[in-house]
């Protein structure tokens, strides 16, 4: 009385690869989002290699044919943007490093150092208020401060005698300091969340081992902050590199020797004869390079940091 234990349909099913509807759905969603995010970048990339004629003659996302290919747009873009690019680097790298350092020391002082809970809370509230001050609200007082109250151009007068230094560079320095000040609160908050998860006993053990407050920061807390430093560094670098409003307010003109890459980019490829799409795309991709490199460099720490924070 033995029956076949499997029907024909079951046998067929067993031969098919194991497909799970959830996995198929997931793959479809991922494909969709991949296409969604990659399409504009791809379109920009192919456009940047097209001649003016090819831009109008071909569909935007189709690569240029042999006759429509050119490197001229990239050449011109790099040529136009290089000074702004260097200015941006000179401003972004120090302000990011300083912000990350000050943000983490501030968070350390507000979480792991014991000097009165009430006072710590009061200072924390000040920081939180700092996060919510809108850029637009400070533009006028900010430029007034750097021009009338604390004019760096005059304070640093002897410096402009040096080679390659121009008074306009004082504005770049003001911009750097402004970004540091504006960045500290949020960086502090990110580090604070991370430091709250560290065990108090770690700091207490170090105290008993004879370490001072600064030594504990330098030898215990800072090395343990690596994942969070990755997160904050990427975030802060990208924010400062891409920032436009402060640059426009403090530097003013894209023709200034201190103009940042975002300022120069805003006018690139537009003139009376129309918009040069190829040039604009090449410029945009060139200007975005540092942020892409930073992501690639810190990707591992970024992922670890996000995991640690949650």
């Amino acid at each position: 009385m033995s029956k076949p234990t499997q029907t024909r349909a079951e046998n067929v099913a067993r031969m098919l690869p194991e497909l799970n509807y959830w996995r198929i759905a997931l793959a479809l969603v991922i494909t969709f989002f991949f296409a969604f995010f990659i399409a504009p970048i791809w379109t920009g990339l192919v456009t940047s290699f097209k001649t003016g004629a090819a831009v109008t003659a071909t569909t935007p996302f189709v690569p240029p044919g042999p006759g429509g290919f050119t490197l001229e747009k990239w050449g011109r873009a790099i040529d136009h943007l290089s000074t702004g690019f260097i200015n941006s680097l000179i401003m972004t790298v120090p302000s990011t490093v300083v912000t990350v350092f000050l943000g983490s020391t501030a968070a350390y002082g507000l979480t792991l150092v014991d000097w009165g809970k009430r006072a710590q809370f009061a200072v924390l509230v000040l920081f939180l208020v700092g996060i919510f001050i809108p850029y637009q609200a400070v533009l006028v007082p900010l430029s007034d401060f750097w021009i009338n109250i604390f004019p760096l151009v005059e304070v640093l007068a002897p410096v402009w005698e040096l080679e390659f230094m121009e008074p306009a560079h004082a504005r770049l320095l003001s911009l750097t300091i402004t970004h540091v000040v504006y960045g500290i609160p949020l960086c502090m908050l990110l580090f604070r969340g991370y430091y709250l998860t560290l065990s108090d006993e770690l700091v207490e053990a170090a105290k008993i081992d004879g370490a001072s407050i600064t030594t504990i920061y330098r030898r215990i807390i800072l090395p343990l902050s690596k994942p969070m430093i990755g997160v904050v560094f990427i975030y802060q670098f990208t924010a400062i590199w891409n920032e436009f409003l402060f640059s426009l307010t403090l530097i003013g003109s894209s023709s200034s020797p201190a103009a940042t890459v975002t300022l120069v980019l805003s006018g690139l490829g537009t003139d009376l004869s129309g918009i040069d799409f190829g040039l604009r795309m090449a410029g945009a991709l060139f200007a975005a390079l540092p942020t892409l490199i930073i992501y690639a460099l810190f990707a591992e720490q970024f992922a670890k940091g996000l995991a640690a924070d949650n």
Partner: peptide, 20 residues
């Protein structure tokens, strides 16, 4: 005196070893 100025050593319940 602060803990740094006392000649003591302590073993914590969580051990509190420096993980790095």
């Amino acid at each position: 005196r602060s803990p740094q100025e006392r000649d003591i050593a302590m073993v914590f319940q969580s051990y509190a070893l420096y993980p790095h």
